[in-house]
Design a protein around this nucleic acid. Structure first.
Lengths: 206, 206
DNA sequence: CAACTTACTGTACGCATGTACAGTCGTTCT
DNA sequence: AGAACGACTGTACATGCGTACAGTAAGTTG
């Protein structure tokens, strides 16, 4: 995936790529339903017709945006050094993904929306990212770098919840901190998400 | 708030209340932008005109839904016993709110969307809930049941993040578990959200 | 009884939206 | 040169949207 190199300057990109980028930003900001194709076109400085020409439908544009996001995850993982112990490799990948997310807030914002919008059955973003993460875990296992004590599903769950959980909740924390007259010393604390009590049969409540 | 008692049977409610309830459910399910007023009307079995008659605009309907949600929080807190130590009172309120949330998934779903949709400046849901929580904390303090070691803002943040964080992230966890052929023994683990490193100056990354 | 209010319906209107499509311009290929 | 093609524009259209509004039926008040 992602055979093309990523040009640094937005103006150097093809119109197709610029449209996809603008769509990602606007979808992240206002949601897919809340973003008219005309808004995307205006942002890029092209006509709606061109978007249709390149992507066909709005749904296809959304799909392209999601594929692009998965590519960014895959790219980030590729940049991380793949040598050392299992823990080292995993940590390096963790850091690479975190850096990518920190650098492109639009991805985080889009993800947050996509996660809670069930939308389509299969083939949506959560499925794609789960598959990508499962590939990573499988890779580490094959090289004897990841324990096989728990199932792949459990490991994928742990990785994704830890990484995405923090990123999803941070804006809520920032909002609340902001709510109480954010002085110069008011910095949001770091949010830590943990999984516990695995395989507990959690009845209604306890 | 919430001077009216809550009838048990939906059909006994006034049309105004039934419209508000249906709007909450649909807004939670598909988002406000993704829910036409016609859909709300159809769900209740009335005409769009009646919704306009009662609420004026869609925005006002949304506002009514949000006020209703805040009322539910306030109601839940009122049902909790207010005696015992500070920790006991706080725990009882925690449980009451958690029970309310568990009983009405639509509230959770709506909240999740509202939190990440910045929408309006002030007066939106996060602000309202922050204010409500701050009232609670202030109340406990006045009765000498809450420590004044940290600021109110910090305490509100801790309470809200802990309660909402778990609830927000659970569906993501469920989705992922579901992704990996959910066997009968596949139960989502419990998600724990924690705050750490308060007031650390978090630069770009570390 | 008449005037008024309130809950409600049905229609209609203007606007925004996604998509289809005909056409223009520039490049490439033969 | 000319045909073919891809990028791109502008218009046009059906649909769906929020809202305005006239009207009806029922209950209340004078």
């Amino acid at each position: 995936m992602s055979e093309r190199s990523r040009p640094r300057r937005e103006e150097d990109l093809t119109a197709r790529a610029r449209i996809r980028h603008a769509a990602l930003e606007l979808f992240a900001e206002r949601g897919v339903a809340g973003t008219p194709m005309r808004a995307v076109a205006a942002r890029v400085g092209v006509t709606v017709g061109l978007i249709v020409h390149h992507f066909g439908t709005k749904e296809a544009l959304r799909e392209a945006v999601e594929v692009d996001i998965v590519d960014r995850f895959a790219d980030a993982i590729l940049t991380a050094p793949a040598d050392g112990s299992g823990a080292e490799v995993a940590a390096a990948r963790d850091r690479a993904v975190a850096a990518m997310l920190a650098q492109s807030p639009a991805v985080v914002d889009y993800l947050r929306r996509a996660v809670l919008d069930p939308h389509g059955e299969r083939g949506d973003l959560v499925s794609k990212l789960s598959a990508l993460t499962a590939d990573q875990v499988g890779d580490l296992r094959r090289r004897g770098l990841a324990s096989a004590r728990s199932t792949i599903g459990e490991q994928v769950l742990t990785i994704m919840i830890r990484q995405l959980g923090q990123v999803f909740l941070q804006p809520l924390a920032d909002r609340i901190v902001d709510e109480f007259g954010a002085g110069p010393d008011a910095t949001s604390p770091r949010i830590v998400v943990r999984l516990e009590g695995r395989r507990e049969v959690s009845s209604a409540d306890d």
